[in-house]
Amino acid sequence: MSQISRTGAGIPLSAAPRRSRQRLKETLYGYLFIGPMFLGVFVFTVLPILAVIALSITDWSFIAGLDKIKWNGLDNFERLFRDPIFLKSLQNNFYLLVTIPVTMILSLLLAIVLNKHVFLKDLFKVVFFMPYISSIVAVAIVYQVLFHPSYGPVNQALISLGVGNPPKWLADTHYALISVMMIQVWVSIGFYLIIYLAGLQNIPKDLYESADIDGANAWHKFRSITVPLLSPTSFFLLVTGVIYSFRIFDLIAVLTAGGPAGSTSVIVYYLYDSAFNNLKTGYASSMAVVLLILTLAITGLQWLAQKKWVNYQ
């Protein structure tokens, strides 16, 4: 480093203007290339972030003009944490996190089997990836019919198997969230599977071979080679899983619209409902701020946790 600056200082004075002109040109080209992207991000993301923070301390509806804006300090936030639907939504968001370890375990087992023990591996990859690639709207519409309480195929099958009073699934406040979670696992298993398969490719084969020589059994190899060496992959999946589970919107919006009786509402759905159906712009913005803070906190936790228990090779 010091060497570079010394040679820099040694350049004859006459070369300096040319060099700085060159540098100016590089800078101009730099801005030219990143310009569209940066402008887009600034106008459509950075400004809205600042705006949403400002709006979160107002009582306003966008159909009224800007002059109707009323500042009301932290009132929105106070109301928010006394609002039963918001609290229910927040709670549901945390329940939804359960789908992440479930999906991780199922897809890891599937990945191990697909990786070594089957023919037609590529075909199976496509099969399990299909739900992830399909439109959530289509998937949700199909499940609405499959889970129909009285004549849906799921309950018809259950009744014919002798279940007297099958749950009403999406129409039942006790089962709706569980149903959503099952569908969520089904949708995301393909994504986790692909990532785990890529992770398995990176484990050196000789580790397993030397374990074989030591007489380790399958469980042993799984516990002391596969799991630890996949920990960066698992960590990646956990983090993206947590971050994205707070963004599940399409599935809920189409499948249940947060119902019945708010039993499947999540923050982003309640935010949407408040902003665009109930036209409470300020109130919805305060939810957005809570969402932003949650995202920040998760990212912070990720940094801390990464140091602790990820085993990078």
Partner: peptide, 25 residues
């Protein structure tokens, strides 16, 4: 500038939906 762009990747789309909507109108 790259850090600014990258940091926005973290922001959930739904968090900025309201101001985006107002801006679009």
């Amino acid at each position: 500038l790259f850090m600014v762009v990258l940091a926005t990747y973290m922001v959930p789309a739904q968090a900025i939906l309201v101001p985006q909507f107002v801006l679009y109108r």
